[in-house]
């Protein structure tokens, strides 16, 4: 345990930090500046396509948390089940995306939006219409490459931080 290099190491370190002083900060000032998330973002909330859903319940079975609840009517209309209730309790959802992978009819998608915090507990339980896609709740391209292509490219830090050490 000696001062092996009589302070040269400390001076080298100081030079490194000094050089960083003249670099561009990498901070993104969040509410004003936003990074674009991945095209496959598993954002908050699921997006559900009511027209394609056949209420087969595969998503509910795939869900590891048991978050999805489907109630179908016993009387089929036009040879299809009618979904009476499609309920997702996003409070328990872990956004693993297994339901989206499991859906055989491409009617369930991950959401692309994030800032979806709620004030009341009951608001995180989404049923039927609340799950439909809208301008505020776009669908992400998770498991759907065609959708992903249409989304803006993800911002990468590696593109911004050009300076090499």
């Amino acid at each position: 345990m000696k001062f092996e290099h009589f302070g040269t190491g400390i001076i080298k370190g100081l030079a490194v930090t000094l050089r960083h002083l003249f670099r561009k900060p990498i901070t993104t000032q969040y509410p004003e500046q936003k990074l674009t998330t991945s095209r496959r973002a598993r954002g908050n909330e699921l997006v559900w396509d009511i027209t394609k859903c056949t209420a087969c319940g595969t998503c509910a079975k795939a869900c590891p948390q048991g978050v999805i609840r489907i109630v179908t009517s016993a009387k089929p209309v036009e040879n299809r089940y009618v979904v009476e209730k499609f309920e997702v309790d996003t409070g328990y959802c872990i956004f693993c995306g297994l339901c989206v992978e499991a859906c055989p009819f491409q009617s369930l998608l991950m959401g692309y939006s994030y800032e979806r915090a709620k004030y009341r507990r009951h608001e995180v339980v989404h049923t039927n219409e609340m799950l439909l896609p809208s301008a505020k709740r776009p669908a992400s391209g998770y498991m759907y490459p065609k959708l992903a292509k249409a989304l803006p490219p993800q911002t990468l830090l590696i593109e911004r931080d050009e300076v090499k050490g």
Partner: peptide, 26 residues
């Protein structure tokens, strides 16, 4: 590819910052 080509420079930088730092050694 870009990351892999950049990263060694950054690791060298960490080494300059820390590897010989007398206090860290002590």
């Amino acid at each position: 590819q870009k990351f892999v080509s950049q990263m060694p420079g950054f690791i060298d930088e960490y080494d300059r910052l820390l590897a010989e730092n007398e206090i860290l050694l002590a």
